[in-house]
Design a binder for these strands. Structure first.
Length: 636
DNA sequence: CCCACGATGACCGTCACG
DNA sequence: CGTGACGGTCATCGTGGG
């Protein structure tokens, strides 16, 4: 079966090639002059450095992209599969090069195909991982859109099988995951031979994958030669045909690919990303005021209709959350993974007395939302009436800032007391004292708890602000520090409940929930408060204390359904999901907020973006969501 | 009006230590 | 387990210049 596909694929590839014939005499000359140079990568790097513009701006990887594209949509049956099998492939293909396996590993862990990862690393180097992710996403988009195209208008000569093979096997990736790398690892020697012959290992690898494990060395050499020729063909595009892109090389090949190969409507993503300026222009910017598609307290703010990208539609419904203020580009990446759904940015200060700026990406309907009742107090003074007595007139705060995992030290509150005690007139302090005190109060979310006294909030108070039952996190062996930590990492229940409220009417008999990174169960509490019956909840949470909290809440609220908890998202693979779904049926909702450690502004140590060790768990959310999405039709 | 510039403020945190 | 020390990025806003 695999061989059959590959052969057809090869045919289709040749079709593509002929659409792209443009010769680059310079490049051909260069290649010929250096027949012993085994690494075309050098050339590629050199070229892409001064990239895009001018006569030297040869776009080395144009053909690679086609290769990836066509290979991926046909041979590989798991779009973003991540397997141990891929490892061997990765190691083999990189053994010869000076590769940073950390970067490679991390990209593989995000679920990208090793082949694609190898390509982009070669093209862009390893230092800018974010860039690499962007590129990989771009490839994925391309793949997705062409896959759709194929489904809509199958091409009898080349590509109809692609859609069907993909569809048929998207549910059981096990077979394919193993199949491809196995066959490749059997060809280590062949690969080695090709590299020794002076071929770039990537090209060799590509050829091997293309022609199958049983192809002869001659065939492979032939294939690579043709590939090289075609690469060079692409390079002679007249410069004026190349969009001017601020010195960045890649965009041209996309437009080329779209117009020449796809020849059909351009995927939105590529239009957006044609030039750097467009990147800027379409950068997701935060709404002001940050009310998302509306808040219950301002009917004028409410939008009841939006258009979801086709791929985004359920089942299952999904709901993803993370901090709104991330390093640049993070939400673009998240959004592109999550089927290009536009984030809904909401500040929970419109739901409670504390700010909490978060982005939510979900495919839920947005009409007829309703809030939990009673509405929580939305000012500090209403939420904590006892504080009013001590609140100075010159502290204008009515809302708290974001509730975090840490709180102010006793020493700081002591310093503030000292500063305030010295005042001759408490109600009218000098400007510098006022400024210092207010600054610290805002920074640490301090409240006035007595004469000259400020203090951080207690965990019980944080629970209330976040919409949890009082003492939700108290007792059962959890320390005060851990309470702050768990609460600081949690959902604001009222905000999430408002978004999830549409489920109540849709699922009168209850829902099955897959809750990833559950924490202290913000989503579960929200659903329960909404009166949505929880039939089966599979909850994945690393922290034991958090799992205990959820379990204890589950028992305390006399839930009739099942709570299955797990400690590691990595355990949740296709097999496990298959097992769960065949026991309970399909999941109706996949909810989760992945760790923000490497994104949050409070992190001074390693706020390194989505590829950070914690925040990269987002890719597991996506991986699992995408798996479930593929499996769901069978369990409906 | 537009743009550049600086000031201001907010931020689901990490680490070593006792 | 509690404590206390540790900046930088990013968005917004006001200002002054063209």
């Amino acid at each position: 079966m695999l061989e059959f596909l590959i052969k057809i694929e090869f045919g289709s590839r040749v079709d593509y090639n002929f659409k792209l014939i443009v010769f680059d005499a310079n490049l051909v000359a260069y290649v010929l002059k250096q027949p012993e140079d085994s690494s075309f990568a050098k050339l590629g790097d050199k070229m892409s450095d001064d990239s895009g513009l001018g006569s030297g701006g040869y776009d080395w990887n144009t053909e690679d992209e086609l290769e990836i594209e066509s290979f991926h949509s046909s041979c590989t049956t798991v779009p973003y599969g991540q397997t141990s099998g891929s490892r061997s492939l990765e190691e083999n293909s990189f053994a010869a090069g000076p590769s940073n396996t950390k970067v490679f590993d991390s990209l593989i862990n995000m679920g990208f195909h090793p082949e694609m990862v190898a390509k982009v690393i070669q093209e862009y180097g390893e230092e800018n991982e974010h860039k690499l992710v962007e590129e990989l996403l771009t490839y994925q988009e391309l793949e997705r859109s062409s896959q759709q195209q194929q489904q809509v208008e199958p091409d009898p000569t080349s590509s109809e099988y692609a859609a069907s093979s993909w569809d048929d096997s998207s549910d059981n990736d096990d077979s394919s995951d193993e199949e491809i790398p196995k066959s490749l690892s059997k060809n280590d020697n062949t690969l080695l031979s090709l590299v020794k012959m002076g071929f770039n290992e990537e090209e060799a690898l590509m050829a091997l994958e293309r022609l199958g494990p049983n192809s002869s060395l001659e065939e492979l050499v032939d294939f690579i030669s043709v590939a090289q020729l075609v690469k060079s063909e692409d390079a002679l595009l007249p410069p004026e045909d190349k969009p001017q892109c601020n010195g960045h090389a890649k965009p041209r090949k996309r437009t080329l690919y779209e117009s020449e190969v796809l020849g059909r409507k351009k995927p939105k993503v590529f239009e957006k990303r044609t030039c750097e300026e467009d990147d800027e222009a379409q950068a997701i910017h935060l709404p002001n005021p940050m009310v998302g598609f509306g808040i219950p307290t301002d009917p004028n703010s409410i939008i009841t209709h939006r258009r979801l990208p086709h791929d985004a539609n359920g089942p299952p419904y999904f709901y993803y959350e993370n901090v709104a203020l991330t390093p640049k580009g993070v939400w673009q990446t998240i959004s592109r993974f999550l089927y290009d759904v536009e984030p809904e940015y909401v500040d929970s200060k419109y739901f409670c007395a504390a700010a909490r700026k978060r982005g939510y990406i979900h495919n839920l309907p947005i009409a007829n939302r309703y809030p939990l009742l009673p509405l929580p107090a939305r000012t500090i003074q209403d939420a904590f009436p006892l504080l009013k007595k001590w609140w100075p007139s010159w502290d204008p705060r009515t809302k708290l800032n974001c509730l975090q995992t840490v709180h102010a030290s006793a020493k700081l509150t002591q310093r503030i007391r000292a500063a305030v005690e010295q005042l001759q007139d408490f109600d009218d302090p000098p400007e510098n004292v006022k400024k210092y005190v207010l600054e610290q109060c805002r920074k640490w979310n301090l409240v006035w708890v007595g004469k000259n006294k400020v203090a951080p909030l207690e965990p019980d108070e944080v629970e209330i602000l976040l919409g949890f039952p009082k003492y939700h996190t108290r007792g059962g062996g959890i320390s005060r520090t851990d309470r702050f930590k768990s609460l600081g990492n949690s959902f604001q229940v009222d905000t999430v409940a408002y978004h999830l409220s549409v489920l109540k009417e849709m699922f009168p008999d209850g829902i099955n929930v897959l809750s990833l990174f559950s924490g202290i169960g913000g989503a579960e509490v929200a659903l329960h408060k909404l009166g949505v019956l929880l039939k089966n909840v599979v909850s994945v949470e690393k922290s034991q204390v958090n799992r205990d909290i959820v379990r204890s809440w589950w028992e305390q609220t006399n839930q009739k359904g099942n709570l299955i908890d797990m400690d590691d998202v990595q355990q949740l693979d296709a097999d496990r999901l298959e097992q769960l779904m065949s026991t309970f049926g399909a999941f109706d909702l996949i909810v989760g907020g992945s760790p923000c450690n490497n994104l949050a502004g409070s992190n001074r140590v390693n706020r390194i973006g989505l590829e950070g060790s914690e925040s990269a768990l987002f890719y597991d959310y996506f991986r699992i969501l995408d798996l479930v999405k593929g499996m769901t039709p069978r369990f409906q």
